[in-house]
């Protein structure tokens, strides 16, 4: 799965989780740019991403994605690596 595919699939998940079909995310998008991406939104997002990509995040990975300065690009790389690890 290449980065483009991951970002494309993430766009669908983000649209569903944040109930906004017009939402377009790219590698540079951060949590601060999306109003609903708060602590609660983060949990919903993580669970939806796990389901969509058929992966499981660890505690450290969930914490890492909410770290200041993290963006969708680094999140997508993590997903890509996990998909590779699980042969998805």
């Amino acid at each position: 799965m290449d980065m483009q595919d991951v970002i494309r699939q993430l766009n669908v998940v983000f649209g569903e989780v944040f109930d906004d079909d017009s939402l377009v995310i790219g590698p540079a998008t951060t949590a601060e740019a999306i109003d609903e991406w708060d602590s609660l939104g983060h949990i919903t997002l993580m669970l939806a991403v796990e389901k969509s990509f058929k992966i499981r995040f660890t505690t450290a990975e969930i914490a890492e994605t909410k770290k200041p300065g993290q963006n969708v690009g680094s999140f997508a790389r993590m997903i890509q690596q996990k998909c590779g690890d699980h042969g998805a």
């Binding site: 983060h42 914490a63 909410k66």
Partner: peptide, 13 residues
């Protein structure tokens, strides 16, 4: 948030 709330919420949800 990172070491208690998130892991417990994910597991509970």
């Amino acid at each position: 948030r990172d070491y208690l709330y998130y892991p417990m919420m994910v597991a509970a949800s």
